[in-house]
Amino acid sequence: MDTLQIISYTGVFVFAVTGVLKARTKRFDIFGAVVLAFVTAYGGGTIRDLLIGVRPVNWVNDNLALVIVVLSTIITFFFKLNTTLIKKSIFWVDAFGIGLFTIVGIQVALRAGISNGYALVMGIITATFGGLLADVLCNKVPSILKPGELYATACLLGGGLYLVMLNYHLQSETSMIISILVIASIRIFAIRKKLQLPII
């Protein structure tokens, strides 16, 4: 298993946990929680693969993917948190999750022969569209569309930095870690300082 796969599966676990925590706020049953965990973890990657023509999509024939989603649901099920702690947990887990998935999305696109600019777009889609689909299923306004979130913006800046570091031939693992931390930091800082893009 290479570094990209480790980061990918870590991202799957992190986003699956986010999905289960969201399901808990809506009082879903265990099956609903598994569905939401799967959508959150694999929705963005599925859309990315369909757009760039990767067949089969990333989770098909990947038994470990299903195991991770189910395990994340079971583990999260046994941690009973109050609503405030759930919201804080979603925020912290999600901040690092979008960092992990941005880098995974960029790498998958680059390996498929996609140009740097569109690889960055695929990284943003990978990181954000799973959460978008999960929010829609929960009947919520997706975080990516809310002012004061800098959700996709964090992915854009961190992903752009990652591509710059790749062009300067920095060590791949180091570039990945730095970019993930930058994305998570921007997201956390934006929420704490209530930063937002101009509103139309």
Rank of each mutant, 00 (worst) to 15 (best):
D135G: 06
S185P: 08
F28M: 13
V17H: 05
V108Q: 05
S172Y: 15
V39I: 13
C138K: 11
K22R: 15
I103N: 02
L137M: 14
V12M: 13
I191E: 15
F129I: 06
T153N: 04
L66K: 10
C138W: 10
W92R: 11
G158N: 08
A152M: 06
K26T: 13
F77C: 07
G105S: 08
L163P: 03
A112C: 04
G158Y: 02
L51Y: 11
T10E: 08
N82T: 02
A127W: 05
T174M: 09
G160C: 00
V34D: 02
Q5G: 05
Q196F: 10
Y168Q: 11
C155N: 08
L137C: 05
L21T: 13
A184G: 03
S8Y: 14
G32A: 06
I188A: 07
S8N: 15
V108C: 04
T73Y: 11
Y151V: 05
I98S: 00
D2R: 03
L110D: 03
Y162I: 00
S179K: 01
N61P: 08
F28A: 10
G113N: 03
Y168D: 03
L150Q: 02
I98D: 00
T128W: 03
K193H: 13
N139A: 15
K194E: 07
A119W: 11
L81K: 12
L50Y: 05
S185D: 08
T25A: 05
V104Y: 10
V12T: 15
L21D: 06
V121C: 04
F101R: 00
W59D: 02
A16Y: 02
M165P: 03
G32M: 07
N116R: 07
H169G: 06
V20T: 13
Q5D: 15
I178K: 01
A109E: 00
G99K: 01
I183N: 01
A152W: 06
I114A: 01
V70I: 15
I183C: 00
I7D: 03
S115G: 13
P142F: 03
T25L: 15
I125F: 10
G32F: 08
L156I: 10
G123K: 03
G97V: 01
I183G: 00
R24A: 07
V35P: 04
K22H: 14
V12I: 14
V60A: 09
F38Y: 12
Y9D: 07
A112S: 09
I144E: 03
K87H: 14
T76N: 07
L132H: 09
I68E: 01
Q171K: 13
V121N: 03
G130D: 06
L110P: 06
F129V: 06
L100Q: 07
T73E: 05
G113F: 02
E149L: 12
G99W: 01
N167C: 12
